[in-house]
Every structure is written in structure tokens, then in C-alpha cells.
Amino acid sequence: MTDPLADQLARLPAAALGAVLALGLVLVLAWTASVSRGVAAGRAVPASMAHAPAEAARLLRQGRRTTLSADRLLWRVGGWGLFPVAVLLIALVPVGETALLPGSLGVVWANALDVVVWALVWLLGWGANSVAGLVGGYRFLALALGYELPLMFALVAPAIAASSLDLAVVADAQSSLWYAVWMPVAFVAYLVGVLGFAVSGPLAAPVGSEVSDGALAELSGPDLLVVRAGRHALMGAGAAIAVPLFLGGGSGPWLPDAVWVVLKALLLTGALAWAAGRLPTLRTHQLMEPLWTILLPLVVLQDLVVAVLVVSGS
């Protein structure tokens, strides 16, 4: 019998390398989202590519600030927590042989991590002790109730079809047909959810320009930089999770599996960010009704159809 501690330590270098790769992938995805966003906003491609580095330099040079009676601990936790959540989400995605954090419950973990964003965005709005921040934080919780249920039921559909909650198994089950094709409603509901937890596009009201950027209103310098990067990273991570869930994982001709996963994630991130940049921000109550009365029943119906097909097919 080997020494258990030594055994664990021997695995550390591989884990560290995986973590670095995951971090790199998140940064690339976040940058892709930022570029695509810039193009959607009418900037030229080179200018869009330079935008993220220039803003990073600008914000790193900028000082930090605080507000009167701010709850600085909760405020900073809310801001600095977003990016790590995106990294953990990426770690769940099976790239090539295995994911950094493989497991039989990948789908549920993805859901648990996106729920953490509820807490973080609210804390971000709360901690600053400002009217705009509070309005933003509370708007987010209202929207979260609207997008999260369709998102949860959307995650159920691929899990039923593959009879597994393991992202790798779900990806492998789509060898003949991508789930995005035969469960389109679940796919759309999932993407709406991604826009929701990335606080972007039509669901950007919590950071709405008309309330001085809401939850972001009092942030400056590095604190603002990590939140902006975190939002782009969450969009990229959400898109990456969609690859094993709906887009057949690593399946594809000629190229190795890992390359296909990354390629699909990049393309979906770009498309999602572009759409987010083009669609107008909707007012909170404009969204609550369609999300609850149209999208949610449709997704439940989608689950039913998938379940019936799976039972009748087997």
C-alpha cells in the first residue's frame, strides 16, 4: 500500500496544469465575448480587439474607492466572486479525455454554480450602500427568479435523454443528433439563462444604463475590472457548458475532440455576445411575464416530449 498523502501529492502537478489551462480558456472566452460585444456595438474589429486590454490598463491604473457606510466585505466578495465561478464552470466541461472536475453530477453542479451568481450580484448591489446599487441588486433577484426556473427545466431535458447527469455521458449520447436540434426550446431557454447569469443583453436591467449601471454604479478600478471580466467570463462559461449539453461535445470531423469543444465554445460565445449586444435591454416587468407564462410552460412541455420519446424509444 502506498503512502496516501504522497499519492495525493503526486497528482498535484497535473491538477495545477489543468487549473492553469481552465483559467486560460476562461480568459480567451471572456475576451471573445468582449470582442464580439464591441463588434455588435458598431466598433471596428481591431478596435474591439484592443478594447479589453485598453480598458484593463485603464482600470488597473485607476484608484479604488468606497462609499459612505459601505459593507466592504460583502461588496468585494460579490465582485471578486464572479470570475472564480466562471472558472469552476469551465472546469466541469469535458475537454478531450476528461474534465478538470469530472463527476457523475456535472449537470447539477453547473446549476449549483450558476445559482451562486444570485448571491454575488445581490451582494454587489447591496454592499455599495447606494440607491443605484440596491435597485440593481433587487432587479437581479427578480429576474433570477424568472430565468432560473426555465434554465433548470432546460437542464433536465438533455439529462433525461441521456439518462445521466454526467456531462461526458450527455455529450457522448449525441453521436447521431445534437440535442440542440431536437430539443430547441430547452436550448433557447438555456441560452436565455446564460444571458441572465451573465447579466447581459435583454436581461441586463440589473446593470441598466438608465440607473447609472445599477449594481456596478459605485465600482471603480480593479474592482470594476473583475466584475466586467467576470460577466464576460460567465457568458463564455455558460456557452462552454452548452457544448456537452446541447452541441454534441467533442464530436466533429478531422480535428481532435478537445479542439472541437473549444471551437464550439468560442463560436457560441461569440454569437451569444453579439446577440446580447444587439438586443435592447428590457425593463424587468417586460421580462417577468414572458419568462414565467410562456418560456417556463414551453420548457416543461419540452421535457415531457423528450421523456415520452425516450420511454417509447427504449
Binding site: V108, W109, V115, W118, A119, W122, L141, A144, L145
Partner: peptide
């Protein structure tokens, strides 16, 4: 108890976010 563990994390974070309000 992986399933119970992840469900506790999921439900409790969600519940506390709403309970704070």
C-alpha cells in the same frame, strides 16, 4: 452523498439569496 451534497449547496445558496431580501 454526492447528490445530497450538491443539492444542499444549490438549494441553500438560492434560498439564502431570497431570504436575505
Amino acid at each position: 452523498q454526492s447528490y445530497l451534497g450538491v443539492i444542499v449547496v444549490l438549494m441553500m445558496v438560492m434560498e439564502m439569496a431570497v431570504m436575505a431580501v
